[in-house]
Computed example of a mutant assay.
Amino acid sequence: MDVDVEPKINFSHKEIRVLLLHEFRLGHKTTEAANNMCSTMGQSLVSTRSAQRWFNHFKNEDLELDNLPRSGRPMELNMDLLKPLIEKDPLLTLRCLAEQLECSHTTVEKHLNELGKT
């Protein structure tokens, strides 16, 4: 019994946006574009809502396909700033450290785990 198994291809966000731009330039509607891409590249490649959002960018002549910087707290922090803080007061909470370093508490937690701290 032969079964057709397509290998899973991992596309970057930028590659998916290039495919959406191609569909847009072909004059396809968003639902048609999402269906075309999912039927040929994988069922969960892009949602109709994502296609709509990107088609709106393209209609407004916004052809930037890279991720733009977002507002909010940075995801990375300088370990040289974190180490002295925890050495000075090892009882500081994650949220207190996050406030001082101007980042999220989950970012602090991730970096503390890398340092072997709990």
Rank of each mutant, 00 (worst) to 15 (best):
M75T: 15
L68R: 11
D66N: 13
T31M: 07
Q100M: 12
W54E: 03
T30N: 01
G116Y: 06
Q52N: 02
E114S: 12
N56S: 09
K29I: 14
A98Q: 11
K59P: 04
L92A: 11
K59V: 08
N78I: 14
N60A: 14
N113I: 10
K8S: 06
M75G: 10
N10S: 05
R73W: 15
S12F: 01
T107S: 15
E61T: 06
P90A: 10
S71E: 09
H13V: 08
E64D: 12
K29G: 11
E102F: 12
I16N: 01
Q52A: 07
E99I: 11
G27T: 09
M41R: 12
S44N: 12
R70Y: 04
C38D: 00
H22W: 07
A34Y: 04
C96F: 07
N56D: 05
T106C: 12
R17H: 00
K83M: 10
T106D: 13
L97H: 04
P74Y: 11
E64S: 11
A34Q: 03
E15F: 04
V108F: 04
L68S: 07
Q43P: 14
A98R: 10
L26H: 10
M41N: 01
R17F: 00
T31K: 10
T40H: 08
D62R: 15
M75V: 13
G42A: 03
S12Q: 06
E109L: 06
R25F: 05
L92E: 12
E61C: 09
A51C: 04
L65N: 00
Q43G: 14
K8N: 05
T107A: 15
T48C: 00
N36C: 06
K8G: 03
T93V: 06
H28P: 01
E109C: 09
V18T: 03
